[in-house]
Write a protein that binds this DNA or RNA. Structure first.
Lengths: 229, 229
DNA sequence: AATATAGTGTGTATTTCTTACACTAAGTAA
DNA sequence: TTACTTAGTGTAAGAAATACACACTATATT
């Protein structure tokens, strides 16, 4: 069964666009490759799908290996299958995105053997990427722009407790445009998935904002009702 | 380069959910398999991706082989990669959907060697399908329900000239619910992508409806403006 | 010629959503 | 106490979505 038949001659990989937010800028995780092809180039983190794991499991494993994180909202968004996208053979890649909060709680520890380093890089200052990874990234950004309007993915970028201004920042960074504060607040609160806390922001040198939490329970109830952020 | 390395030990396939509309019912094309596994079962048409074709090209080729058609709006919607989805080895499948007008112009001639027959079957009366094809179909139907609201895919199901009632029928079949005639017309016309013809429906035993055409030129102009059907 | 049938085609009032817009309140730092 | 910085709030106008009912017309039947 596991002998290699002639038609079983291709490989499937996962590439991840890991978006991160550190409170200020929208970043993605890139690795600097240490192996051919594209040695010394920057690239999206990715790897081959193992024999005994589904593509979803593979994506989780890869995310875990690269960041130490588990239990992250991650979603497949497209499969890239051009013939010559990989110089060493036929590799079709399934792209996933994930959203991570950076810093704060636990520092991320990317542990890759095939990379010189892994680094969070501002999406507005991306270096030249190997393979077709620029294209994969572009499609990923496009996708989350659309999804952020319908799914609560933005909250994955934020710490557990956050201010409404922080939520707005995330939306503005992803959508790439300014939003009106009053309208934004009205709308985001109208979905009823945020819980206002009895707590204020600390350590700021101005009026402290009220903290909120994303309420998973309320969200689960609404789901199916097609809510639009 | 084309020797088989141990990591190149999987296969990638395409499965197509071909939606068809004959004026009355929403159907999909199924084949009755003539080979193991799942001999004598119904299944979605699909095939392995060739070495020298991209996954998109592969999808077009397969559609062509199965229906004789080319130049059909077809779109990738998800990749299914469970470990045991194919009993003969690791096969990851990329799913596409397409929308076809049935009958009328040219009859479809499915030419498959690995199938006993190909047949258009009402989506409300699907037989038991082999592999994970029921699941692939379910996801496909879900997808087009969402897409039909934003992209003009419904017109792919209709003949070149159609009445507004026919358009509404297609929407109702896909969405699975009744729509209000007045509101539907107002909305569909408001997008400005239909051109009213100087022609009426023929051969009906009641007041003949005005025929319309989908205006690709107008649609192309609007594209980018995020129109919502 | 009258009538039954079946689908076409239209208008308006109501509600809901979107957008635009500017000031006061609170906390901190000097 | 004052100056500074961000938090937080309401309303009006316009646009879009919804709900809803009746007259028109081509044909087939008698």
């Amino acid at each position: 069964m596991k002998e290699i038949l002639p038609q079983f001659n291709s490989a499937v990989s996962i590439d991840c666009v890991l978006f991160g937010f550190d409170g200020g800028e929208l970043k993605i995780l890139l690795i600097e490759r240490n192996e051919e092809p594209f040695k010394d180039w920057w690239a999206l983190p990715g790897n081959l799908v193992g024999e005994d794991e589904s593509v979803d499991q593979s994506a989780s494993r890869i995310l875990h290996e690269l960041t130490g994180l588990s239990d992250v909202y991650m979603e497949q968004y497209y499969t890239f299958g051009e013939v010559d996208r990989h110089p060493q053979g036929r590799v079709i890649t399934v792209a996933y995105y994930a959203m991570l909060r950076l810093g704060g709680d636990k520092a991320l520890k990317p542990l890759t053997t095939y990379a010189k380093k892994a680094q969070w890089i501002n999406v507005r200052e991306l270096p030249k990427l190997g393979f077709d990874h620029q294209h994969i990234f572009d499609k990923g950004l496009e996708k989350i722009k659309r999804r952020i309007k319908h799914l609560p993915i933005a909250f994955e970028l934020l710490p557990e407790k956050f201010t409404l201004t922080q939520v707005q920042n995330v939306y503005e960074l992803i959508l790439g445009k300014k939003l009106d504060k009053r309208n934004f607040r009205k709308k985001i609160l109208s979905f009823g998935v945020l819980r206002e806390l009895d707590e204020k922001q600390k350590g700021v040198s101005f009026r402290a904002a009220t903290l909120y939490k994303f309420d998973k329970r309320k969200y689960a109830k609404l789901f199916g009702k097609e809510i639009s952020f």
